[in-house]
């Protein structure tokens, strides 16, 4: 497999006179193989947009190496810019121009044949509205226009920063189909998102970032498998006993998630420990199964951003990757 995108040890800190420095990227690594749809996951403020901006030459890194389509960037960016279509953080367009004018100006500047404009408008579903001003578009329509502008170059690598923003369910499904088609036609797609179900459905592989460091990466099934160990679902004979059982298990050191009719326990080594403990309290288990984690719980675990009852989590309260690294040993760690 060849990599179309490689990042090693990327560093970026934002300096502000009032708030000092903020390490947005702290030795971040990433690798995207050709022809894949790669998911780039992370909580808000973890550094996804910063990574993509740095990659595209919009901001200057403080350290690290980056390669795009076999060229060192930012040094050789001009050589690859024509093959990389990108949208970075809901892109804005000049509000008084129509979609067609906007695309046609870009096509002229980038020496793209003008028939391509109609093709991409058709692809993103804006054909019939293309002569209206961008100002009159809804958020989702602007997002579609943004994707159209990225597709205009017929790119080998398509980078989309939270493309599902503002799209309706139909739009999200269309976007998914579009990306699948592009990938089948040989385009590599890098998709940043915090919508996990989305990534799980369409991505071949993922990179998970937390506080500017990679906390897990690899094919989706492998990441899931590596982190699903030790999770069980517990049902009791009487639903009314769930709170009591939950407290008892929490006291015993399990991580407990309460659902309406069952409990999810993480960090379980032997199922018997759970049954013995509950039986000792006079609570009887009616069902106990090992569950495969979904990407959401892996994500929440790795980035430690699961909501805790009675607390409001602040945006930068995520896992320190060094800490997570121990738990996610086995090749997936940072």
């Amino acid at each position: 497999m060849t990599a179309v995108l490689e990042i090693e040890g990327l560093q970026k800190s934002y300096r502000s006179r009032r708030r000092g420095t903020r390490n947005a990227l702290d030795g971040f690594d990433m690798r995207v193989e050709a022809g894949q749809v790669h998911g780039f996951l992370g909580p808000n403020g973890s550094g996804k947009t910063t990574t993509l901006r740095t990659l595209l030459g919009l901001i200057r890194p403080d350290g690290g190496r980056m390669r795009l389509l076999d060229h060192e960037v930012p040094a050789d960016l001009s050589a690859v810019a024509g093959q990389v279509g990108a949208i970075v953080e809901s892109p804005q367009f000049f509000p008084h121009f129509t979609a067609r004018e906007t695309l046609s100006l870009l096509a002229t500047a980038g020496q793209v044949r003008s028939t391509r404009i109609d093709e991409v408008l058709e692809l993103v579903g804006l054909r019939d509205r293309s002569r209206e001003r961008v100002k009159t578009y809804s958020l989702g329509m602007k997002q579609r226009l943004a994707v159209a502008s990225a597709l205009l170059k017929d790119p080998r690598l398509l980078i989309l920063d939270e493309p599902a923003n503002g799209l309706d369910p139909g739009g999200i499904r269309e976007m998914r189909a579009l990306m699948r088609n592009l990938a089948e036609a040989g385009t590599t797609v890098l998709l940043s998102s915090h919508i996990l179900a989305e990534i799980q459905l369409i991505c071949d592989s993922v990179t998970i970032i937390s506080l500017g460091r990679r906390v897990a990466f690899g094919p989706v099934e492998k990441v899931l498998a590596a982190h699903s160990a030790g999770t069980v679902r517990v049902r009791l004979e009487a639903v009314a006993d769930l709170p009591e059982a939950g407290e008892a298990l929490t006291r015993a050191g399990f991580r407990v998630t309460r659902e309406p009719d069952h409990l999810l326990l993480e960090g379980v080594e032997e199922a018997a420990m759970v049954t013995r403990l509950l039986a000792g309290q006079g609570l009887y288990v009616s069902e106990l199964v090992w569950v495969d984690a979904d990407l959401e719980s892996v994500f929440l675990e790795l980035t430690a951003t699961a909501p805790a009852p009675g607390q409001s989590r602040q945006v930068d309260q995520s896992a320190r990757p060094a800490m997570v690294g121990q738990r996610s040993a086995g090749g997936w760690g940072a």
Binding site: L58, A81, G82, P91, Q92, F94, L106, A109
Partner: peptide, 12 residues
């Protein structure tokens, strides 16, 4: 409006 950024993605 961010048009400059879009342009720089085309012409670095």
């Amino acid at each position: 409006t961010g048009g400059m950024m879009t342009m720089l993605l085309w012409r670095p």
